[in-house]
Simulated assay, not measured.
Amino acid sequence: MNTDLLTLMQWMSPAFPVGGYAYSHGLEQAIDDGAITDADTLFDWLVTVLEHGTGMVDATLLCLALKGEDMADTARALASSKERYQEAEAQGQAFTSAVNGIYGEQTPPAPLPVAVGIAARRLDLIAPQVAAHYLHAFASNLVSAAVRFVPLGQTDGQRVLKRLHGVIEGVAARASQATLDDLGSAALGSDMASMRHETMEVRIFKT
């Protein structure tokens, strides 16, 4: 067993103190709008986010940061809404703080995908592997949000996550070969849901 892989699994675990459970990435608004009502509509929404939205963008930012490029300000500039910016920034600060505490370092904070890419430079793992674990944690958090808010049964939630494995693998592979010029998002429904969530009167998630 590769101990570096165990380290990455620790960082991506729900037990790692980044507070990911508090964020829905606009999913709460989409559910409230009736765009997501069951496992199939959740799966379709997540495929779009992973392949054409934040999933691909974050994975690319992570891989570029892993290669040594300074991507923090680029990640901030790419945030499509106030809440998306806060989501990435707050989780990135929490992640960096925890890693700094573990290793006795003073690495400055960065948005979450960039922070993970920087931290993963110490690991003897290939970029697609790191990106896939990051995307799996991202998707798992959104599935968990849907389980609580649709509501969706736990088993249906796990079925959705299993169906996403091939998608995650494909996105991670593409991101590992992507360049700065490839960065872009086309998940407009997800972006608009995130923007509208800012003024949602009653909500349980921060985003």
Score class of each variant (00 low, 15 high):
51 E>T: 14
51 E>M: 06
51 E>L: 07
52 H>F: 04
53 G>F: 01
53 G>A: 00
55 G>Q: 05
55 G>H: 05
55 G>P: 02
56 M>F: 14
56 M>G: 00
57 V>P: 00
58 D>I: 00
58 D>C: 14
58 D>Q: 11
58 D>W: 12
58 D>P: 00
59 A>S: 14
60 T>M: 07
60 T>R: 06
60 T>W: 09
60 T>H: 05
60 T>P: 09
61 L>E: 07
62 L>T: 13
62 L>H: 05
62 L>M: 08
63 C>I: 03
64 L>T: 04
64 L>R: 15
64 L>P: 03
64 L>N: 02
65 A>P: 03
65 A>H: 04
66 L>H: 13
66 L>G: 02
66 L>A: 09
67 K>V: 01
68 G>P: 08
68 G>I: 05
69 E>R: 11
69 E>H: 05
69 E>M: 07
70 D>A: 15
71 M>T: 05
73 D>Q: 08
74 T>Q: 07
74 T>W: 00
74 T>D: 03
75 A>S: 15
76 R>A: 10
78 L>P: 00
78 L>N: 03
78 L>Y: 08
79 A>W: 03
79 A>N: 04
79 A>Y: 03
80 S>Y: 12
81 S>N: 08
82 K>V: 09
82 K>N: 11
82 K>F: 12
84 R>V: 14
84 R>Y: 12
84 R>E: 07
84 R>S: 15
85 Y>L: 15
85 Y>T: 01
86 Q>T: 06
86 Q>W: 09
87 E>A: 11
87 E>N: 14
89 E>N: 07
89 E>D: 15
89 E>C: 01
90 A>G: 00
90 A>T: 15
91 Q>Y: 02
